[in-house]
Design a binder for these strands. Structure first.
Length: 135
DNA sequence: GCCAACGTTGGC
DNA sequence: GCCAACGTTGGC
């Protein structure tokens, strides 16, 4: 099972909204590399839900429930979306500052390529961040 | 096919 | 609000 991190600006789509919806289609990704990551997702894969801009922290865990399919909101037909469901909020949000302060996370995609909105998370990174989020 | 100009994202 | 990083566009 692979792990990922998906970003959203709370003003656009926040974690509380996601929890309320229970499930959502992750549309709006318009970046080739992020789209590649979406295509690599499989049902059952888990994702960190990260609030960019406001908060700048991992606030919850989501699970992929449907593999990539064409994003109907994309007129060019080039991009895809996946369906994800909310699993649970983390006990303690993991801030970007905390991630940057952790030497073992210096290669984390979130830090290395800050503009990418769908980032792969290595197993060791996933486990470590989960531990940090357990509080 | 190169590269300058421009737009967008996201951290600070 | 600014700026760095990076992607995209369009002229040549």
């Amino acid at each position: 099972m692979a792990h990922w991190l998906i970003k959203s600006e709370p003003s656009a789509y926040s974690w509380p909204q996601f929890v309320k919806d229970k499930k959502t289609s992750w549309t709006g990704v318009r970046n080739a590399q992020a789209a590649m990551n979406l295509k690599a997702m499989k049902p059952g894969d888990r994702c960190f839900f990260y609030h960019s801009n406001e908060g700048k922290e991992i606030v919850g865990v989501a699970e992929v429930v449907k593999a990539a399919y064409p994003d109907a909101t994309d007129e060019t037909g080039r991009f895809v979306t996946v369906d994800v469901k909310a699993v649970e909020a983390v006990k303690k949000p993991v801030t970007l500052a905390a991630i940057k302060a952790e030497p073992r996370l210096k290669d984390f995609g979130l830090v290395r390529q800050s503009r990418l909105s769908v980032v792969p998370v290595a197993d060791a990174q996933w486990a470590l961040i989960l531990k940090m989020a357990a509080g």
